[in-house]
């Protein structure tokens, strides 16, 4: 019987430190290649477990256009993530999924795409960013706006440097509080909106970050003329099963795990706790 709840094993191939409390894990599947056995779309998530310490959902931070491995970026916040952070190359963890709807990549083709991320909100968008960059000619202008509390809290620092050097991508970064040596922008993410030329009519905007940041960013975008269907976010909720059964992530008649985690702002606005 095909069991929804039975994890398969994934081997940690590489671990990269992102910030003092955040690491990226590169995963290989034990029972086959990612492309063959785990087809996914950007924005979907995995249920990862360290057996004995628990299981939780993590967004896939990589793209099916780079199917050599799966990447997830994990901040230490509790029992399971503490356990994950003790593991290194060669260790194995449990994996279920992919779960959820993911981003509608086809809908973004031909459009300008804007990514707005706060802190640990960049990893859920990174798979789509990779996908867009790997099929760059299919998309219009690409803008990445990223904010974190401090420069140390920025994830994917090397990659940000690479993106900053590209001439087919505009990257703007800000921090809430500067640290010695920081010469970039200081302020909340919305300050970046005035530093670029947003094109509401031709763009889709992907927003991910803490709930409070999402709220301010979305309000700002709507005032700037973006439609409610053009603002897309990915939601976080307590989840157990990942398949719409345990009910933890339900908001009204929608299950974030099954119907989401990606929703347009129009859908989000209709959801009431």
């Amino acid at each position: 019987m095909d069991d929804l709840y039975l994890p398969r094993l994934a081997r940690i191939a590489e671990v990269r430190d992102e910030t003092p409390d955040t690491r990226t894990f590169v995963l290989q599947l034990r029972d086959g290649s990612v492309a063959d056995t785990l087809p996914f779309v950007p924005g979907q998530f995995l249920e990862l477990s360290v057996f004995g310490c628990g299981e939780a959902p993590f967004c896939i931070a990589s793209s099916p256009t780079r199917p050599q491995a799966l990447e997830v970026t994990v901040r230490r916040t509790g029992q399971l993530t503490d356990a994950l952070h003790t593991l290194g190359p060669g260790d194995e963890i449990g994996l279920r999924g992919p779960c959820g709807n993911g981003f509608d990549v086809a809908a973004a083709r031909g459009k300008d795409v804007v990514f707005v991320a706060g802190g640990i909100g960049l990893p859920p968008l990174r798979g789509l960013i990779w996908n867009v960059l790997d099929e760059r000619e299919s998309f219009g202008r690409v803008t990445v706006l990223y904010g974190a509390r401090t420069p140390s809290d920025l994830v994917y620092k090397n990659e940000l440097a690479d993106w900053g050097r590209r001439d087919d991508l505009e990257l703007l970064v800000t921090v809430d509080r500067a640290e010695p040596g920081w010469e970039g922008n200081v302020g909340m993410v919305p300050i970046l909106f005035d530093m670029t030329e947003l094109q509401p009519a031709s763009s889709l905007v992907y927003v991910c970050g803490p709930p409070i940041m999402i709220r301010f960013v979305v309000q700002d975008l709507l005032m700037r003329g973006f439609g409610e269907d053009a603002v897309i976010s990915t939601l976080e909720r307590m989840m157990q099963c990942g398949v719409g059964k345990c009910n933890h992530c339900a908001i009204g008649h929608r299950y974030i795990c099954r119907d989401g985690p990606v929703f347009s702002y129009r859908q989000i606005r209709e959801m009431v706790e």
Binding site: G52, C53, G54, E55, Q240, C241, C246, N247
Partner: peptide
């Protein structure tokens, strides 16, 4: 009503159970 929770527990001999 059928909400459920899933927890991992460690039992002796380092065997885990979900």
């Amino acid at each position: 009503c059928s909400c459920f929770n899933v927890v991992d527990e460690l039992v002796p001999q380092s065997v885990g159970q979900r």
